[in-house]
């Protein structure tokens, strides 16, 4: 066990290893762990949805949160971006507790965090260009030309420059995701969260969205958090996987590590997803 780590118990006694922020106290931007979620709880009335979640999100990597429907993935996401406030627990982003922020301080931090919603959530009263320009017009004093340059740069680098003048409704699902990513990246975004970005898309488009997530990461150096229930995409894109099971963490780590000690609900989930056994076996045998 590495220095400064602690172990907590997750679902069904699973051991979750957590890092400590102390080592990088003075320069939190250099910490390989970007976000630390610690003992997060959320209930709606009597319905206890998040039952004390703790895990790490790694900087500049693709972190996939996976789990069956209803396991609390979207609820967790809503706490991470503070659309809702958790009942208790911490979300430390670069060492700052996000759950304690209010008003202006929260809005300031929000600009560093982008969100790609399940159905893209583009403003359908605006063109693609205006959608992507929206955060710049709201939050910066850039000139018209600067805005145009920045927006077109993002659109072109994501391969949708030609669609700048169209309305979101005219675009395919895959292109809409691209616009949503462009809109989320147009400010100085450090963290990009995707809620089930490939649900409802055909396999080919799914692949292009997976590539898009990788692209956004390599071009802009963002930390990606991808919420998914698609096991196949985990193998394609994940650097780290966290498996949620009805409000608890069942396992977390790099995908190969997890596959080696597959058990319990995660095993069932992987089997049911139809991911070939060979892949799993290969992962177990080889390093």
């Amino acid at each position: 066990m590495a220095k400064g780590t602690t172990v907590v118990t997750g679902h069904a006694g699973a051991k979750i290893t957590l890092t400590s922020p102390d080592e990088y106290k003075d320069e939190p931007e250099k910490d390989p762990v970007h976000i630390r979620v610690r003992d997060l709880h959320k209930s709606y009335g009597k319905h206890h949805v998040l039952k004390g979640m703790s895990f790490d999100i790694f900087r500049g990597k693709t972190n996939v949160l996976i789990g069956p429907s209803g396991s609390g993935k979207s609820v967790l996401m809503r706490q991470l971006i503070r659309l809702e406030s958790p009942d208790s627990g911490e979300v430390l982003v670069n060492g700052v507790d996000y759950t304690k922020l209010r008003g202006r301080a929260l809005d300031k931090k929000r600009k560093g965090m982008g969100m790609v919603f399940q159905m893209s959530a583009l403003f359908d009263s605006m063109t693609v260009f205006d959608n992507v320009a929206f955060p710049l017009r709201e939050h910066t004093k850039l000139s018209r030309k600067e805005i145009r340059d920045r927006v077109m740069d993002r659109l072109q680098s994501l391969g949708i420059g030609a669609a700048w003048n169209r309305s979101p409704a005219e675009l395919s699902g895959g292109m809409q995701r691209r616009v949503a990513v462009a809109r989320s990246l147009v400010l100085e975004t450090e963290i990009l969260i995707y809620d089930e970005p490939t649900t409802g898309l055909d396999p080919i488009t799914t692949q292009t969205v997976d590539d898009l997530i990788r692209e956004a990461e390599s071009k802009y150096g963002v930390t990606s958090i991808v919420i998914s229930h698609d096991m196949a995409s985990v193998f394609r894109i994940a650097d780290y996987v966290t498996f949620l099971y009805f409000g608890e963490i069942a396992a977390t780590g790099p995908p190969k590590e997890l596959l080696k000690e597959l058990s319990g609900p995660m095993m069932e989930f992987v089997r049911a997803s139809g991911v070939s056994v060979e892949i799993i076996e290969a992962a177990r045998r080889g390093k």
Partner: peptide
């Protein structure tokens, strides 16, 4: 209502508007 159910209102919040 359409903006709400298609998360456009949440999108505004996450863009600090």
């Amino acid at each position: 209502g359409s903006m709400r159910v298609s998360s456009q209102i949440d999108a505004l919040t996450t863009m600090a508007v």
